[in-house]
């Protein structure tokens, strides 16, 4: 029987190939589906909206850090494959606030995109910027929303200066929520602008506007006499507290963010071009889901191969003749 088939193909290769192609096309109309692994993402994007994000030193063109962060997130949204889940949030003070529960990126693209576009520093409910608290809260929110990736865009600016002895402890498992800390801004210290209603710069933060040293819980002397100018309530830091006296300026704090990345198991990335974020996401998240996928192209592809083969009848015929003595 097998010999018979071989012979028939050898004798009339074109006809047999085309017949096989026609038969292969039949299952296509039953809409065959097979669960296949597909890369989809579930990402919470959190953008720092504190005032240091208004410094205009980010990206290739030197635009405001916040504007650049928005661009990067919008670009990443455009590159996420359909089926990915996305939520958007913002960070200020010590807290992260997510705007909505995660949504599928393709079906809800326009609202996601506009929500990012309208993130503004004026939405900040307080002016402090406790970056460590914020990042840990971001991880917590991400986990609560059942997302597996956090993208936290910030310049790492801490304001007012924090007391290193009272930093929050990371109580999650490092790497349980994966993702990226994306540093935005330049490494050169810049003055932080004050903006008017139309985002025009009306002035800059001056040294006396910003808290230059940590005040909270700084008293650690055993004896009051040891510290000049000590006052338990008004000046627990003494008369000449240590401080850099540059707190009214801001630069991307890469060292601090790298440190935080190490603690939390996130990847640190200095975002210098908005397209980097989508790439980094692709590399740093390996989440595959089994999605019922359309396998019609498999049948169509085989049919196409057979159709093409039918244009080489002599070759096909020789293939099937070979077996015969």
């Amino acid at each position: 029987m097998k010999q018979g088939w071989r012979l028939r193909i050898a004798q009339a290769p074109g006809r047999m190939l085309l017949l096989a192609a026609c038969i292969l096309m039949l299952p296509v109309f039953l809409h065959p589906q097979l669960p296949l692994p597909r890369k989809v993402f579930s990402v919470g994007f959190v953008i720092d909206i504190t005032q240091s994000m208004n410094v205009r030193d980010a990206g290739p063109g030197g635009i405001a850090r916040l504007a650049f962060a928005r661009q990067a997130v919008r670009d990443a949204l455009r590159h996420l494959p359909c089926g990915s889940l996305v939520s958007i949030g913002m960070f200020t003070e010590r807290d992260v606030s997510m705007l909505f529960k995660p949504m599928e990126v393709c079906a809800h693209f326009s609202v996601l995109d506009e929500a990012v576009e309208r993130l503004d520093w004026r939405m900040a409910w307080a002016a402090d910027s406790f970056i460590t608290h914020g990042l840990y809260r971001g991880i917590e929110e991400t986990r609560k929303l059942k997302l597996d990736t956090l993208v936290f865009l910030t310049d790492g600016q801490q304001a007012p200066p924090a007391n290193p002895r009272y930093m929050p402890v990371f109580d999650g498992k490092p790497g349980e929520v994966g993702g990226i800390i994306a540093g935005v801004g330049g490494l050169q210290r810049q003055a932080i602008p004050k903006l008017d209603e139309n985002d025009n710069i009306t002035g800059y933060w001056l040294p006396e506007d910003a808290m230059q040293f940590a005040t909270f819980g700084m008293s650690h002397v055993q004896s009051v006499l040891e510290m000049e100018g000590y006052h338990g309530r008004n000046a627990p830091h003494g008369a000449h507290p240590e401080g850099s006296y540059t707190e009214h300026m801001s630069a991307l704090d890469e060292k601090g963010l790298q440190e935080l990345a190490k603690i939390t198991g996130l990847h640190y990335l200095h975002l210098q071009d908005k397209a980097q974020l989508a790439d980094a996401l692709r590399q740093n998240t390996l989440h595959r889901q089994w999605v019922a996928s359309d396998i019609r192209p498999v049948f169509a592809g085989l049919a196409l191969l057979l159709l093409l083969a039918s244009y080489f009848p002599a070759f096909i015929s020789s293939l099937f003749k070979k077996g015969k003595p």
Binding site: M90, L99, F100, K101, H108, V111, A115, R118, R122, M123
Partner: peptide
């Protein structure tokens, strides 16, 4: 609350509105 937050633009997207109200 202390500051206004822009959550969603005018939309027909009922799923998005629900997701925003929920959170």
């Amino acid at each position: 609350s202390t500051s206004p937050v822009f959550v969603l633009p005018l939309t027909h997207d009922q799923v998005a509105l629900k997701a925003a109200l929920d959170s």
